[in-house]
Amino acid sequence: MTEYKLVVVGAGGVGKSALTIQLIQNHFVDEYDPTIEDSYRKQVVIDGETCLLDILDTAGQEEYSAMRDQYMRTGEGFLCVFAINNTKSFEDIHHYREQIKRVKDSEDVPMVLVGNKCDLPSRTVDTKQAQDLARSYGIPFIETSAKTRQGVDDAFYTLVREIRKHKEKMSKDGKKKKKKSKTKCVIM
């Protein structure tokens, strides 16, 4: 069974824990209790493949930012979460993405942009803004509501699919490099 290491990042209060708990335990946590770091595991079937999701729910508070490099190193894919009623959390996505790329030393890291709290009427981040940002990053965008469960499975499952595509691409690139290195030079 394939294991996928997913990391949920975003500013404090955007609903990272609520999304994760909704996926794992099928219930909505409405009281806000700032996370330092929590880890969850769940076995699911995605596109006919049974897999184990190892999900790291991270601290959004700035005082825990020193811990970010460590979990970013171990993560295979990242859910970059903002709240649709919090423009600052949307603007912060850029910083999370840049930090992930720096730590992973790669421009090509599996990510999904997630606009959470889409059940709320007080939207300050337009869907088109988020779609445009995701398009500019070359990553999928999904709106979710941890409260109603809308888009929750889709967000995590899409990230797994992005990781699969990335692994497939990397193995193809690896095979191309191996083929090239088999060419021999004969000096007579």
Rank of each mutant, 00 (worst) to 15 (best):
E3R: 12
L6H: 00
V7N: 10
V8K: 00
V8M: 03
V8H: 00
V8D: 00
V9S: 01
G10W: 00
G10E: 00
A11K: 01
G13L: 09
G13H: 03
A18Q: 06
L19G: 06
I21N: 15
Q22R: 08
I24P: 13
Q25N: 05
H27W: 05
H27Q: 11
F28R: 07
V29L: 09
D30S: 08
E31G: 11
D33Y: 06
T35F: 06
I36D: 07
E37Y: 00
D38G: 12
K42S: 09
K42T: 07
Q43I: 06
Q43E: 10
Q43Y: 05
V45D: 09
V45I: 12
V45F: 08
I46T: 05
D47R: 03
G48L: 02
C51P: 06
C51K: 06
L53K: 01
D54W: 01
I55C: 09
L56N: 12
D57R: 04
T58P: 10
T58R: 07
T58W: 05
A59V: 08
G60V: 06
Q61V: 10
E63S: 09
R73W: 06
R73P: 06
G75Q: 04
G75T: 13
E76A: 13
G77Y: 04
L79F: 06
C80E: 01
V81H: 01
I84W: 12
N86F: 01
T87H: 14
E91W: 09
D92H: 09
I93S: 01
H95Q: 12
H95M: 03
H95Y: 14
Y96W: 13
Y96V: 12
R97V: 15
R97Q: 12
Q99C: 08
I100M: 04
I100R: 00
V103Y: 15
K104F: 05
V109E: 01
P110L: 01
M111C: 03
V112R: 00
L113S: 01
V114I: 14
V114Y: 00
G115H: 03
N116P: 00
K117W: 15
K117H: 14
C118H: 05
L120C: 10
P121V: 10
V125M: 12
V125Y: 10
D126T: 09
K128I: 11
A130S: 06
D132F: 03
L133R: 06
A134V: 02
R135H: 10
S136E: 11
Y137C: 12
P140H: 12
F141H: 03
R149Q: 03
R149T: 05
R149A: 14
Q150H: 15
G151W: 11
D154R: 09
F156Y: 03
I163Y: 02
K165H: 04
K165C: 04
E168M: 05
K176N: 09
K178I: 08
S181I: 13
S181Y: 01
C185A: 15
C185L: 12
V186P: 15
M188H: 13
